[in-house]
């Protein structure tokens, strides 16, 4: 078996309205990882998930789950997937218990009340098992959707903006649950608009914009980029070029010659800020102002989107 549980290749999707929601998307999701998909509204996140889960017909390209084509072998692919949709869509008149029993059956599993009980308990819904869905609060409904998605013990779980409208404490709880699922080997794909959230729990982060996957990277790697700091030195007099004596520090000179930028690793103990500043003084450069800048994931995100 390959190390990838979901393989999306050259996937394009045009809605009947004519809108091109996905453009030649390639994405491979590793077994057991947590992948966070970030992207602005209308980027195509939900469309991508919907195609993988069988809710939307793919246009061209192929999608496989655990090696099974989502069209040809839809039974095998779908029974491995659990989906928590973005919208709070759940039959209102049913009881919580019947709702999860229904989900388990739909995905081809026989009754297992003990398991369903443990799922409801882990989502603090066990006390509500006999309540009608419409009697639940918004946050509880969202947790019920998660319980329904887990009812058939899926190998891959898609969470489409699971924390929208969920309070801080609950969000913590939810991430704890996601962590536990990961421990059990469940692959988790979630979309979110909260970058800190992705930063906190994801193994890898993917960025989608206007139907294209701009980047999929290990969070660690992104964090390393994130750790980069810049020291900007504003000069009194413009410089034609970076003086020879400062070459070792690989400074960037702005077009107008009035700004020198020194980029260094803020996370490391061994940087050369002191030496660099000493060299500036020896070169008799007069400084007007000094400030530092830290690249955040947010900035990486924004600059990527601007480039696209």
């Amino acid at each position: 078996m390959s190390e990838y549980i979901v393989e999306v290749a050259a996937l394009s999707k045009q809605y009947p309205s004519g809108h091109q929601a996905l453009k030649h998307v390639d994405l491979r999701i590793r077994k057991g990882e947590i992948l966070a998909l970030l992207g602005p509204n209308g980027a195509g996140k939900t469309t991508l998930i919907s195609i993988i889960c069988g809710l939307v017909n793919p246009g061209s390209g192929s999608v496989q789950v655990a090696g099974f084509d989502v069209i040809k072998d839809y039974r095998q692919s779908r029974q491995r997937i659990g989906l928590v949709p973005q919208e709070l869509v759940v039959s209102m008149f049913e009881t919580v218990w019947n709702s999860v029993v229904f989900s388990r059956g739909m995905f081809g599993k026989g009754r297992d009340d003990a398991y369903l009980q443990s799922v409801l308990q882990s989502l603090s819904l066990w006390e509500k098992r006999d309540s009608k869905v419409m009697e639940l609060s918004g946050g509880m409904k969202r947790r019920l959707l998660i319980a329904k998605a887990l009812a058939h013990e899926p190998e891959v779980l898609f969470l489409d903006e699971p924390t929208a409208g969920v309070d801080v404490e609950l969000r913590r709880e939810m991430w704890r649950l996601v962590g536990q699922l990961r421990q059990k080997g469940v692959t988790i794909i979630l979309t979110t608009h909260y970058i800190e959230e992705a930063e906190e729990i994801a193994d890898r982060i993917g960025i989608i914009s206007r139907g294209e996957v701009l980047l999929v990277e290990e969070k660690q790697q992104l964090m390393a980029r994130l750790g980069q700091k810049q020291l900007m030195l504003q000069l009194q007099q413009p410089l034609p070029e970076v003086p020879e004596s400062l070459a070792a520090f690989q400074l960037d000179l702005s077009e107008d010659g009035l700004m020198l930028t020194y980029t260094y690793d803020g996370g490391s103990d061994h940087n050369h800020v002191t030496e660099m500043l000493g060299a500036i003084e020896r070169a008799r450069l007069e400084l007007k102002d000094v400030h530092t800048k830290q690249r955040s994931l947010e900035q990486i995100f924004v600059s990527l989107l601007e480039e696209a």
Binding site: R78, V89, S91, M92
Partner: peptide, 13 residues
């Protein structure tokens, strides 16, 4: 209501 998503995403014909 939208809850049809569950039927459409289930391994059923």
């Amino acid at each position: 209501s939208g809850s049809i998503y569950e039927v459409l995403s289930a391994p059923v014909s």
